[in-house]
């Protein structure tokens, strides 16, 4: 059961970094201006069940603006479920239910006033395996903006998005070739460009490098580092070194519970909880 809560009135529709935000529907969840450190996502005693099985248990977590928050933990610990709850991707999972509260910039994500389609426009997602559309590079980026009624210069939007995804130089001469002709790493950056084209406020990344080789992984990690100046990033990863390299904060989950969260530099040097210590040092998991 989802608990209702008052929705904050937005003070602006332009998040930090000067990124323009498309017009919002009256039912939308709108962002406010956010400086680094402001809380963008806040989970309060969040429990997510698949049927009767609680995949996420009583999790309270804050994700601050303009930072990368990594969520780590062994397989089945609930980290992807938690990530997917943030933009309501679990709505597509039969028998998934949510208890507790989840806020995006103060607005109740599971409240009746939230339009999930609009929410997903604000909170984009990049998946484990690159999943470009069976279209050209150009149309992969332009498609989302087009169906959302974008009235600006689409070509400029495509170029800007591909540049932000550090892909423009590699594809500018083959914009109208199939996205499937790109390498795995390029396809993943194309998916990031596609998400960026909608001017999201938050980017959720669910193991975005797990299908990539080390060089492509390094490119994506560099990209994440650049993206955080404009977007709030939540990253689920199995790769602890990656979490240590790219994130500002790290949350460790185990068996559905949030065990510990804190600055990455502390979590990977002096974790307070023995279970975190045992996991990061490979003693279990």
């Amino acid at each position: 059961m989802v608990t209702a809560m008052d929705t904050q009135t937005p003070s602006s529709t332009t998040p930090r970094g000067g990124v323009a935000v498309p017009a919002l529907t009256p039912r939308s969840v709108a962002p406010t201006d956010g400086a680094a450190g402001d809380v963008v996502i806040r989970a309060e005693q969040l429990t997510i069940r698949y049927g009767t099985f609680p995949a996420v248990r009583d999790v309270s977590l804050e994700i601050p603006a303009a930072q990368v928050t990594a969520i780590i933990g062994p397989s089945g610990c609930g980290k992807s479920t938690l990530l997917r709850a943030i933009n309501r991707m679990n709505d597509f999972v039969p028998k998934a239910s949510v208890q507790g509260r989840l806020f995006y910039r103060g607005a109740n994500v599971y409240g009746p006033e939230c339009d999930p389609v609009d929410l997903r426009r604000r909170i984009g997602m990049v998946f484990q395996k690159p999943n470009p559309f069976p279209k050209s590079v150009y149309h992969n980026v332009a498609w989302g903006a087009r169906i959302n009624g974008y009235r600006g210069d689409i070509e400029e939007l495509v170029e800007q998005s591909l540049r932000r995804a550090a892909l423009w130089d590699e594809v500018k001469d083959k914009l109208h070739e199939s996205a499937y002709a790109l390498s795995g790493g390029q396809q993943q950056r194309l998916c990031i460009a596609r998400a960026i084209a909608l001017h999201p406020d938050v980017l959720l990344m669910d193991e975005p490098c797990s299908a990539l080789d080390p060089i492509a992984t390094a490119r994506i990690e560099d990209l994440i580092d650049q993206l955080k100046s404009q977007y709030t990033v939540a990253l689920v990863t199995h790769n602890m070194q990656q979490a240590a390299r790219v994130s500002d904060r790290t949350a460790f989950m185990y068996m559905g519970e949030l065990v510990e969260v804190g600055p990455t530099s502390l979590i990977f040097t002096t974790p307070r909880n023995k279970r975190t210590q045992d996991y990061i040092t490979g003693r279990f998991g």
Partner: peptide
Amino acid sequence: YQPVGSDLR
């Protein structure tokens, strides 16, 4: 091994 936590310390 790129150790972390107590191993790194």
